[in-house]
């Protein structure tokens, strides 16, 4: 029972967030200057309409969540509870990637992110994750990225070659 009401609370929150997003979009859209000279329909109409669609979807979902919460992972009593530890480790890996990719370069940053991700999925040997991550990042940088002519930029290791 408490799992159900917890699930319902989450659905209500999600629906409210959608309605808020729609409402926000309408407000922002209304700041777009209405008409360029000569245009019959300006840059504003479509954004306002999209915002209204989201707003009404959010409100109707709110009603649904309140009355009969729909079936999903969050309301399924058999679903395992949200496992936050691996999520936190994953998030830390992404943060490291974002912070280091400019300063230390793609290979270093992504090797570390790889190790964090592997840890989140239960890998035990850190040295092995780092090794595999490094080899993969290295090969990707000089293989895949070159093939597609992507420019991932320099870095600590990239500048050595």
């Amino acid at each position: 029972m408490s799992a159900l009401s917890l699930g319902r609370a989450q659905l209500v929150a999600v629906s409210a967030a959608i309605a808020a997003l729609g409402g926000g979009a309408v407000l922002v859209a209304l700041t777009i200057p209405p008409d360029a000279a000569g245009a019959v329909v300006g840059a504003r109409s479509f954004p306002v309409a999209v915002g209204l669609v989201l707003l009404s979807c959010g409100l109707l979902l709110l009603l649904e969540a309140w009355r009969t919460p729909w079936e999903c992972e969050a309301t399924d009593p058999e679903a395992p509870p949200l496992d936050l530890v691996p999520l936190a480790i994953l998030a830390a890996g992404m943060l490291v990637n974002v912070l280091l990719i400019k300063a230390a370069g793609f290979i270093v940053a992504s090797t570390l992110m790889f190790a964090f991700t592997a840890r989140a999925f239960g890998a035990r040997r850190l040295w092995l994750s780092l090794l595999i991550g490094f080899v993969l990042a290295f090969a990707t940088y000089y293989g895949f990225a070159r093939m597609l002519d992507l420019r991932i930029g320099g870095g600590l290791i990239e500048d050595l070659f």
Partner: peptide
């Protein structure tokens, strides 16, 4: 699985950051 998903996130970085070299895009991706 650990290496599989590690690899997937690595390719996700290459495929997005590699186009624009913009950290903003990376944050947006996540």
């Amino acid at each position: 699985t650990p290496y599989l998903y590690g690899g997937i996130l690595l390719f996700a970085t290459v495929g997005t950051y590699g186009i624009s070299r913009s950290v903003f895009d990376l944050v947006l991706l996540y």
